[in-house]
């Protein structure tokens, strides 16, 4: 292909990077334009920035509520999944449980299922079956935290298992011989050694929960709506507020971008579910 000059290759990659970055840049351009300017000839170069869209989004009480919901749900879900995944993996690697490989395989298959298929049964279960008196899980933050476990918990188990496998059992045994309780062994011997793996799992599960849209759109009405569903509310057949929509998109994008810089090298392993090591 491009033999010889490495600078030609750089040029080629500048072109590819332009294709990657331009749509994101365009999102930003739309977000800093007042509504009246949108329909004139599109300008590629920004001449002036108009920040009112961001101010509008930030001061909108409903959207602030959605942001808070997104933050609570994804943080709660990430903590829950990482915690449960950690204990589950400890059990799977340290104990001689009957049929544990089948259990492990079954937990993973939960991740493979298309969420669209589970919309209806989850909706019906959450409105009709999983209820205590008048309290249903539908449209509650705790409900969403639990529902997101269906895809994040298998992921946490999948990524944490190699980490726990990598910690020598002799360390546990030595601590037990010294008379430590099981809890002490887990919290003071195993946990500190797992920290890097736990951090990556926590961050990636957080992003997956933050990015989720379909389940949130079906299983919430108002109280637990997340930022991603708020975004779709601004797209209507009668008229879309493009600037606001772009600004919400940027708000949704920022945490993912921050995370991106932190766990860049783990993303591929995370997204391919460990099938390919990136």
């Amino acid at each position: 292909m491009k033999k010889g000059n490495p600078w030609l290759r750089t040029l080629f990659w500048i072109f590819i990077s332009f294709l990657t970055l331009f749509p994101i840049y365009w999102l930003f351009v739309i977000s800093v334009k007042p509504a009246v300017d949108l329909f004139s000839t599109p300008d590629i170069i920004l001449k002036s920035a108009y920040w009112q869209n961001y101010v509008d989004v930030w001061t909108d009480r409903t959207l602030r509520g959605y942001m808070l919901n997104s933050l609570i749900i994804s943080s709660g879900n990430a903590l829950l999944c990482t915690g449960l995944g950690f204990f589950a993996c400890y059990a799977l690697t340290r104990f001689d449980l009957g049929g544990k490989e089948s259990i492990f395989f079954w937990t993973i298959t939960n991740r493979m299922a298309p969420p669209a298929v589970f919309l209806l049964p989850l909706f019906l279960l959450m409105t009709q079956v999983y209820r205590v008196g008048d309290f249903t899980l539908l449209d509650t933050r705790i409900g969403m935290i639990l529902v997101y476990c269906t895809f994040n918990l298998p992921f946490a188990i999948w990524t944490l298992r190699p980490t726990l496998d990598g910690i020598p059992r002799e360390l546990d045994e030595a601590a037990y011989v010294d008379g430590a309780s099981s809890w002490k062994v887990i919290s003071e011997v195993v946990f500190p050694l797992c920290r890097p793996g736990l951090a990556v799992t926590l961050i990636l599960t957080w992003v997956f929960a933050w990015n989720e849209y379909l389940l949130a759109a079906t299983l919430t009405n108002f109280n637990a709506r997340t930022l991603t569903t708020g975004l779709s509310e601004y797209v209507t057949t009668t008229g879309t507020e493009w600037g606001i929509m772009a600004a919400i998109s940027v708000f949704t994008l920022i945490p993912a971008l921050i995370v991106f810089t932190m766990v860049q090298r783990h993303i591929v392993t995370g997204l391919t579910f460990g099938a390919v090591k990136g």
């Binding site: 590819i16 990657t20 992003v207 849209y213 929509m245 860049q264």
Partner: peptide, 29 residues
């Protein structure tokens, strides 16, 4: 080639984006 690491990072960028954001970006495009 010069700048390989940077280009690789840029190339990875879309992967972390929420599908719904990708949808809204392309809608705007």
């Amino acid at each position: 080639f010069p700048g390989k690491a940077i280009f690789r990072t840029i190339h990875t960028l879309p992967l972390i984006m929420a599908p719904i954001i990708v949808g809204s970006i392309w809608k705007l495009m």
